[in-house]
Amino acid sequence: MIEIPSDLHKDVVPLAFLLGTWEGAGVFDFPGTEKCNFGQEIVIRHDGRPFLEFRSRTWVLNEQGEKVRPLESEHAFWRITSNHDGTSGARGIEISSVRDDGTVEIWYGELADGKPQIDVSTDAVARIEGSPEYSGGKRLYGFVNGELLWVGEKAAPNVPLRPYMSAQLKKVLSPAQLVKDINDLPDDGIAFFK
């Protein structure tokens, strides 16, 4: 079930399925870098204005699933826009993001009509000196069976666009939600287990 907060700005209601803290794992694989499994935490929140704030942290995992070192961090703002191609049905999405490696991106795409799926591509990429070579990307996000799944594609001057990162994330319940759920248990608590 997708909850829509009462103070969520009306312009971003179609993105309500993204709200919350998500955690999980995925695979990272791009030429010139070491292939690895990674852990990820994504926090998507709102403050009543017409955008969502997106924060992602990833870290390399060892074979036992333990954190080894940071991989990437990203901070972005997601907005709903009118469609750039004038089509009806799907809604336009624009994202402005910055990564810890000094890359700044502008993404455009759309929210699928009738399902919680987002497809975006880079429109502009800027890099500071010393950041990895990168010329553009694509991402697909989907809310499937209560989980957030995503895949990212990346291109560099000598590498054509190809999948490089994907993850499966589960929503983390907040302590406030857990307390609310506990209040629904029978008074003695034991009846729950019978």
Score class of each variant (00 low, 15 high):
3 E>W: 09
8 L>I: 03
8 L>A: 04
8 L>M: 06
15 L>F: 11
15 L>M: 10
15 L>I: 06
16 A>K: 07
33 T>A: 13
33 T>H: 13
33 T>P: 00
35 K>N: 07
38 F>T: 01
48 G>K: 08
48 G>M: 04
55 R>S: 05
56 S>N: 08
57 R>Y: 03
63 E>L: 14
64 Q>W: 04
67 K>L: 05
69 R>F: 07
71 L>I: 01
71 L>P: 02
73 S>H: 03
75 H>N: 13
81 T>E: 14
90 A>S: 15
90 A>T: 05
90 A>K: 10
92 G>E: 03
101 D>M: 07
104 V>E: 08
107 W>H: 13
109 G>Q: 06
118 I>H: 03
122 T>C: 07
127 R>D: 00
131 S>C: 08
132 P>D: 13
133 E>C: 00
133 E>Q: 15
136 G>T: 02
138 K>H: 14
139 R>Q: 12
140 L>K: 09
145 N>W: 06
145 N>C: 05
147 E>A: 15
156 A>E: 06
156 A>T: 02
159 V>R: 06
159 V>A: 09
161 L>H: 06
163 P>S: 08
165 M>Q: 08
166 S>A: 15
168 Q>D: 04
170 K>I: 12
171 K>E: 13
171 K>Y: 11
174 S>E: 15
175 P>H: 13
183 N>I: 11
184 D>E: 15
185 L>T: 10
192 F>A: 10
192 F>D: 04
193 F>T: 10
